[in-house]
Design a binder for these strands. Sequence first.
DNA 1: ATACGATTTTGATATAAGTCAAAAAAAGCC
DNA 2: GGCTTTTTTTGACTTATATCAAAATCGTAT
Lengths: 185, 185
Amino acid sequence: MNPLIQQFKKYGYLNEVIAEEVEKRTRYFFKKKGEHFLREGQHLSSYFVLSTGLIRAYFLKNGREMNSWFGEENQIFGSILPVYTEKPSFENIQFLEDSEIYAISVDDLNELYRIYPELNLIGRKIAEEVCIVLEERIMSLHTESAAERYQSLIRLQPNLINRINLGHIASYLGITQETLSRIRR
Amino acid sequence: MNPLIQQFKKYGYLNEVIAEEVEKRTRYFFKKKGEHFLREGQHLSSYFVLSTGLIRAYFLKNGREMNSWFGEENQIFGSILPVYTEKPSFENIQFLEDSEIYAISVDDLNELYRIYPELNLIGRKIAEEVCIVLEERIMSLHTESAAERYQSLIRLQPNLINRINLGHIASYLGITQETLSRIRR
DNA sequence: ATACGATTTTGATATAAGTCAAAAAAAGCC
DNA sequence: GGCTTTTTTTGACTTATATCAAAATCGTAT
């Protein structure tokens, strides 16, 4: 059973028939550190899971890279936004470590939603859980100082601190790396 | 057909049977300006729509009110978070104008999801659309200056500026009202 | 061990936004 | 219309964080 199906099963019952259909449409990739999964402008939406590795999503703002999120092993994530807006993605997705990735395209997934409507239960719960994560991030950006945001990150994703360099973390927090260095001290 | 059902129908097909069941479970309220719909600590999750009126969600941070969002007519919104975390809501919801509100409790909705699994399609699309709105807010808080965030608000919800006082808007933007007053000038 | 590039820290200064206090303007109310 | 309360603006000063420059440290390949 591939890791993507394992993730789906966390959110609701997935019968054998549907699991088999997801399996058929799942693609496996091995990518080396530094490679990109998605580049800005490509319109390749998908949900995916890493069995090993680490990933970041970033976009360009005034020519500067800004990290929007990091992903570790056994979390489900994806770029959903472009699917609905029909705009090309402004998001870049890059591997920060050698990674094994299992992905299903949103086109394939939409086909499965159509054929097996009960799969929408899982899709709904995933989206609702994403909402909660996004709300926490909003709270953090809205109300916390730079130092507090750093503490929140440590609380929510403690492993990241040891796997990701200071510049990337600072950009995720919306501060400069000099400021983060001073906070750490 | 109540406004809540109208909103649901924007996201996908809703047959007569299900629409009737939603109708039965919809509650109507009239609330005067200043009244609360939800207060912190109450665990009454629901989706709702205003046919007339204006609403704000806020929470307390160091004894100070911080606005997290505003809602106008014919938008669907709700406090979903507490349902999943099983924690009491930290969110307060208050009417900024006399309002007519149509609400369905999340308990009722979950019952309908169970009986009519095809309703999950609509639930999924609503949650996915909420994700997009939240992502825009994150981008704004993450990358923009106070003045730019004010411009973004004007772009996304232009009516609010005329209906909501400066203090509330400043708190939503994460700045003081003195700063917003200076930005406006 | 040495040397190289990448990453992190430190220092000096600049800027955006906050704080506190008060005045001005607008909105409600009898 | 005049009075009170709320909202918005203005001013002086403070603080958090950014910027620019340089030094120190770390990681890794030779």
